[in-house]
């Protein structure tokens, strides 16, 4: 299946644009829905919305803190999806969450709830290729694109299988580590970007440890674009609000457009 995300991202890429996917923690602060809209208007090509989980093992301190704040404020997967259905943006929405949230809801029910609320894709970082079957089939059946992750140490054979099975885009994890800002872009980013570009024609985005416009541009030189999470969420935790978020995303956009 070629879904809405892949079609949209391919079209933009093929028009010569580098892709930018910001991450926003769902339920973080009363105005998080406006943050999503502001980020879309500031030049995002798709938006990742986190459904917070109590035990986010792939996340560093910033997204952990954001998740805890959202949960403490009473956010649930259902409440976030309901609010998302009212978001007015013209780029695809993707949720990022952990597998127990999906498993608890039930594969088919969760997939249907995403489709019903206008969410096009899902990223489940603790569901590796070898455990994908149940969710993968349910997501495919509901027309939800499951974006799979590839790590710098993923063997070539697995990398090829993931590129085959991933929908929407391929998420290259730029660094061996969890989400969080880094002072410099890891050397693994370029190597992984090139390996992925050589293996697939699907959009290849690098994320984790991509924190500044300069790093975004550097990473995008070897890929089709980038995902930026912690650097944006930290600004939100510091009170940036929709305007501050939009300003940062505009900087990232400018960094990519200068390539």
């Amino acid at each position: 299946m070629t879904g809405a995300i892949e079609i949209a991202l391919r079209a933009r890429r093929d028009a010569g644009r580098k892709l930018l996917v910001p991450y926003v923690t769902g339920g973080l602060g009363p105005d998080w829905v406006r943050v999503v809209e502001a980020v879309a208007a500031a030049g995002a090509d798709a938006i990742e919305v986190g459904l917070p989980f109590s035990d986010p093992v792939m996340d560093g301190p910033v997204i952990q803190e954001a998740s805890q704040q959202a949960l403490a404020a009473g956010a649930t997967p259902a409440s976030i999806l309901t609010e998302l259905s009212r978001v007015d943006v013209d780029v695809p929405l993707v949720v990022m969450t952990y597998y127990n949230i999906v498993f608890r809801a039930g594969h088919r029910r969760f997939a249907r709830s995403l489709a019903d609320q206008g969410v096009s894709g899902a990223i489940v970082p603790d569901l590796p290729l070898i455990e994908l079957d149940g969710w993968g089939a349910a997501a495919d059946g509901a027309g939800v694109e499951t974006i799979l992750l590839v790590a710098p140490n993923t063997p070539d054979a697995t990398l090829a299988q993931i590129c085959e099975r991933s929908h929407g885009w391929i998420y290259g994890v730029a660094v061996m580590g969890v989400t969080g800002e880094r002072a410099t872009l890891a050397s693994t980013a370029a190597t992984l970007g090139r390996r992925l570009k050589a293996a697939t024609d699907k959009p290849v985005l690098l994320g984790v440890g991509v924190s500044t416009p300069e790093q975004a541009a550097e990473a995008a030189a070897d890929a089709d674009g980038v995902i930026v999470g912690s650097a944006l969420v930290r600004r939100l935790l510091e009170g940036a609000g929709p305007d501050g978020a939009a300003a940062f995303v505009a900087e990232l956009r400018a960094g990519l457009d200068a390539l």
């Binding site: 093992v57 792939m58 603790d126 590796p128 590839v150 790590a151 063997p155």
Partner: peptide
């Protein structure tokens, strides 16, 4: 072979830890 005891067990981890 997939690390199951009946329906339980498995390997639900980020892809970066699967090779390890």
């Amino acid at each position: 072979a997939d690390g199951r005891f009946g329906e339980f067990g498995g390997r639900f981890l980020p892809e970066s830890l699967i090779p390890a």
